[in-house]
Design a protein around this nucleic acid. Structure first.
Length: 462
RNA sequence: GGCGGCGUGGCCGAGCGGUUAGGCAGGGGCCUGCAAAGCCCCGUACUCCGGUUCGAAUCCGGACGCCGCCUCCA
């Protein structure tokens, strides 16, 4: 079984499964009030890779990731654009799925929406109020953090040391500055749901508790998300589950930030790039490769230079696919290793990659091993050991496929005009008419083709 | 103020006591009509100062610098 860093215990430990062979994981999803950005891209890629790798190893993965479709930002945007909250949410949810589709992140097994779980949230909150774990104030209902003994466990701090912080706001009459809103009472014109404690809408931290426990059940295996959700969001989810008497996530995993020139990418700094924009102008696989080449807990620097670096590395992978005529893998379906990969070298490679990935999802080492194998496969082919080389190349393809990265050997559709020029060039070359051959090569290049000679003649691709 | 992380060759990015990761860029060679692709070879890096050790990028102490969380945030 894979070993993963557990943010709660601050150690790498085996992911223990509630039921053998089945993994239940919950990933905090987006609030849909804008285009997805690179940070969203990173967390979806990281957890998609984990999911794929577990699936590849034969586990059945129940992967739940929510859509937060009601919150203050959505309300504000709807007001600003004079449209409905639902309209905003639907629009950006569509953008979200478009981007996920392009970047090759598989759909979750379930993607619950907060607005579909309001009744369950209300019930939970009623229970808290009955036990005085939650208390109503003028503008909403608050959770009393002092009622959870180890509140602050995820933050790695006790409540009183958190309290020493300079940034706590004391604006409300809360019992403690860390008490958080379970429910926000509706102001005129705001969307609301009925509740015994007053019409309103749920606070953010409650939906994930209800949806994760509702869909995955008590004591589910793994809860994931961006590092910035660790505190207070995940802390507050956990507090509610504990207060409600439900065993919660048994393992917590957090991915590192996307950095721009050394600073965290964030909306307030205005240094974010939308994922949608990136996917329009680059090969979507480049970002996956960039993410794979660093460890999921490390910050990654995203810039035009690092993206371009990944795109060039991708070319080398694709040329392997061309040379060995590899099938394109890693679409919507998941690769599964039902039997050992054929070939001695392939077996060794798979073993190394498995060792690396099972050790806290060390994708950079796995990718390094795959690149080494790539050189080896090409070298074997150059030496004429074609069968060995072929098996190794296919293993590389399979393993990249397991990580969701497709190797693409096809260079695009060739139109009639280009095909005709290719024929003429081959004739010129056969006649050793080099000047004409070069002229025809230039015209192919002008049409946007990359031109290569091979034993079977001129090969072109985009 | 509390808690946590990081400083690696031109760039990105692993490493967690001894083995010059890997990628991109650059240089040289093989192959090629010339190219391209591919293969081979080359760059000996680890913020600084002490210490531990036969041996430290890796452990300990200190300094400096940077970043994150403690507020909405993936």
């Amino acid at each position: 079984m894979i070993r993963l860093f557990d943010s709660l215990k601050s150690e790498v430990r085996p992911l223990a499964l509630r039921e053998p062979g089945q993994v239940s994981m919950y990933v905090c999803g987006p609030t849909v009030y804008g285009l997805p950005h690179m940070g969203h891209g990173r967390f979806t890629l990281v957890w998609d890779v984990l999911r794929r790798w577990l699936t590849f190893q034969g586990y059945e993965v129940d992967f739940v990731s929510n859509i937060t479709d009601i919150d203050d930002k959505i309300i504000n945007l709807a007001a600003a654009e004079q449209t409905t909250e639902a309209g905003i949410a639907q629009r950006y949810e569509q953008e979200w799925w478009n981007a996920m589709n392009k970047i090759g992140v598989a759909k979750p097994t379930h993607s619950p929406h907060a607005t579909h779980y309001v009744a369950e949230m209300v019930t939970l909150i009623e229970g808290f109020i009955a036990e005085d774990i939650a208390y109503p104030l003028g503008d909403g209902v608050y959770f009393d953090t002092s009622r959870v003994a180890d509140y602050g466990a995820l933050a790695g701090q006790a409540l009183d040391s958190l309290r020493a912080g300079a940034r706590v706001e004391m604006v409300e009459e809360k019992r403690s500055p860390f008490d958080f809103a379970l429910w926000k009472k509706a102001k005129p014109g705001e969307p609301s749901w009925p509740a015994s404690f007053g019409e309103g809408r749920p606070g953010w931290h409650t939906e994930c508790v209800v949806m994760s426990l509702g869909l995955l059940g008590d004591g589910f295996d793994l809860h994931c998300g961006g590092l910035d959700l660790k505190f207070p969001h995940h802390e507050n989810e956990r507090a509610q589950a504990i207060a409600a008497g439900h065993p919660f996530a048994q393992h917590w995993a957090h991915n590192g930030f996307v950095m721009v020139e050394g600073e965290k990418m964030s909306k307030s700094l205005g240094n974010f790039t939308s994922l949608t924009d990136l996917l329009e102008r680059t090969d979507a696989r480049a970002y996956r490769l960039l993410v794979l080449r660093s460890h999921y807990r490390s910050p990654i620097e995203v810039s035009p230079a690092t993206i371009e670096d990944a795109e060039r590395a991708l070319e080398r992978l694709d040329s392997l696919a061309r040379r060995f005529e590899l099938d394109q893998l890693a679409g919507d379906t998941f690769a599964t290793a039902t039997q050992p990969l054929p070939g001695e070298l392939a077996g060794e490679l798979a073993q190394r990659v498995t060792e690396f990935l099972d050790d806290d999802l060390n994708t950079p080492l796995a990718v390094a091993a795959l690149f080494e194998a790539l050189s080896q496969a090409n070298g074997l082919a150059d030496e004429g050991k074609t069968a060995e080389a072929q098996l190794l190349a296919e293993a590389i393809n399979t393993l990249f496929g397991a990580l969701g990265l497709a190797l693409i050997g096809q260079g695009g559709e060739i139109d009639g005009e280009s095909a005709a020029i290719v024929r003429l060039r081959d004739e010129a070359r056969a006649a050793k008419n080099w000047a004409e051959a070069d002229r025809l090569r230039d015209s192919l290049v002008n049409l946007g083709w990359i031109v290569e000679d091979s034993s079977s003649g001129t090969v072109i691709r985009h």
